[in-house]
Simulated assay, not measured.
Amino acid sequence: MSFRTAVATDAEGIAALHADSWRRHYRGAYADAYLDGDALADRRTVWSSRLAMPGADSVTILAEAEASIIGIVGFVHVVLDKDERWGSLVDNLHVTRGRQRSGVGTALITRAARAVRDRGTTAAMYLWVLEQNTEAQGFYAARGGKPAGRELVPPPGGVPDRLNGRPACLRYVWPDVRDLLHG
């Protein structure tokens, strides 16, 4: 396994993994028509934009399999110092189905914590996870994340029809990422 910072040419691979992960884990909260239709194009637009002009306020780290034919097996995207109270936002963390429970997610969240420690103005980090995604909640809790709030899920791209009803998400926090790095 190798890790590196994403570049613009990685947008397609990241978008494909992101859409696939949403299709597997967000079904029920996100509308099937969106997941089975526009999700990939929507994620492609988001990632092409994010990676076209990367800023000093965010970082996207990729995990790649040693065999180059496999490519991206996971990624994490961090927005540094996103919130005055909660710190830096882990906006996305996704791992391919075949690599879950293999240490990729742990390696990625650790790299996110290092980026926050090294580049953030505060050592705090947080993320949002769908209330229905109890598997991810268990992953974050096992790495020291604590639940600290609940809000309604914002619709992807601001389009309300992309949601089923009013799903909720939970905020998980790490008040000091050094605990995650030394834990």
Rank of each mutant, 00 (worst) to 15 (best):
T5K: 15
A6P: 02
A6L: 05
A8V: 05
A8R: 12
A8W: 10
A11N: 00
I14C: 05
A15S: 09
A15N: 03
L17R: 02
A19R: 02
D20Y: 05
D20M: 12
S21E: 05
R23D: 13
H25S: 14
Y26H: 11
Y26W: 00
R27H: 05
R27M: 00
G37A: 11
D38G: 15
A39D: 06
A39R: 01
A39Q: 03
L40C: 08
A41F: 01
R43H: 11
W47N: 08
W47T: 09
M53L: 14
P54L: 11
S58F: 14
V59R: 09
T60N: 13
L62Y: 10
L62S: 08
E64W: 07
E64A: 11
E64R: 04
S68F: 00
S68C: 00
S68P: 15
S68W: 03
I69S: 13
I69P: 00
I69F: 10
G71Y: 07
I72D: 05
V73Q: 07
V73M: 10
G74E: 07
F75L: 03
L80Y: 04
L80A: 03
D81K: 06
D83H: 13
D83V: 05
D83F: 06
E84W: 07
G87N: 11
V90F: 10
L93G: 00
L93S: 03
L93A: 06
H94T: 01
V95S: 09
T96P: 02
R97C: 02
R97A: 13
Q100Y: 02
Q100I: 13
R101H: 14
S102N: 06
S102L: 11
T106L: 14
A107Q: 15
L108C: 09
I109Y: 08
I109K: 04
R111Q: 13
A115L: 06
A115W: 03
V116C: 08
V116N: 04
R117E: 12
R119N: 12
R119W: 08
A123I: 03
A123V: 04
Y126M: 08
V129W: 04
E131C: 03
Q132E: 14
E135V: 10
G138V: 00
F139A: 07
F139K: 07
F139G: 09
A141K: 09
A142I: 00
G144P: 02
K146R: 15
P147K: 05
P147V: 02
G149K: 06
G149M: 07
L152H: 13
V153H: 05
P154A: 11
P155K: 00
P156F: 06
V159D: 13
P160G: 08
L163W: 01
G165F: 12
L170I: 15
L170K: 10
Y172H: 15
W174K: 03
P175D: 10
D176C: 06
V177L: 05
R178T: 12
D179K: 08
L180R: 03
